[in-house]
Amino acid sequence: MAGDRLDELSMAMRVAREFREGMYVNLGVGIPTLASSFVPPGMEVILHSENGMLGFGPLVEDAAHADIFLINASVQPVSPRPGMCFFAHEESFAMIRGGRIDITVLGALEVAENGDLANYQLPGKVCGSFGGGQDLAFCARKVIAVMTHRTKDDRPKIVQRVTLPLTAPRAVDRVVTDIAVIDVTPAGLLLREYVPGWTPEEIQALTAAPLRIADDLQPMTLA
């Protein structure tokens, strides 16, 4: 039967493989932010945080080195780095809306086969929070959704049509899950990578939209 599922750190490692030298990258709350720890040594990737900061360093792990005036958009302390800069909120979103962000990585609740993204309102909540995610989903050059393949109660998150409130239509380019990497293409979903131990048939069975299989389908590698 099917193989193991990736844990959050492993998913973050896979996400980090998307980064290239010189990219401007914005990472959402949760697993996406963890990916900042896996930028290959020596590669210069400039992180953007929508609360008004570019070029900051790794997360700070202990309160003694934490600065409440040096936080990312998840309100986690980060470290300073030569070359970093600060700016106001409207400037931060001029960068996003002006198309300067090469990649954004966002958590997701549902992704549809046409790239529709639902990630701002949990079922049962009286309202949801767009935060900066809607702007990023609409405007970043490449939008990567990272999430477990199924919900905690084992329902599909990759679907034909989203059932939860829409964050952004036709926004997602690639989905990284704990068992697969799937691209959104004009011809539908394309399975590109599988976690070793899983077959395309097993992945399809857990996906509520049809998958085509890439000609160069590969096992997922993390580094």
Partner: peptide, 19 residues
């Protein structure tokens, strides 16, 4: 407050809010 119907919400993304 929202759940009790005592407040009104206009939800916006941060970009439109800031702009």
């Amino acid at each position: 407050l929202l759940r009790e119907g005592k407040a009104e919400l206009e939800l916006l993304g941060q970009g439109s809010l800031a702009e």
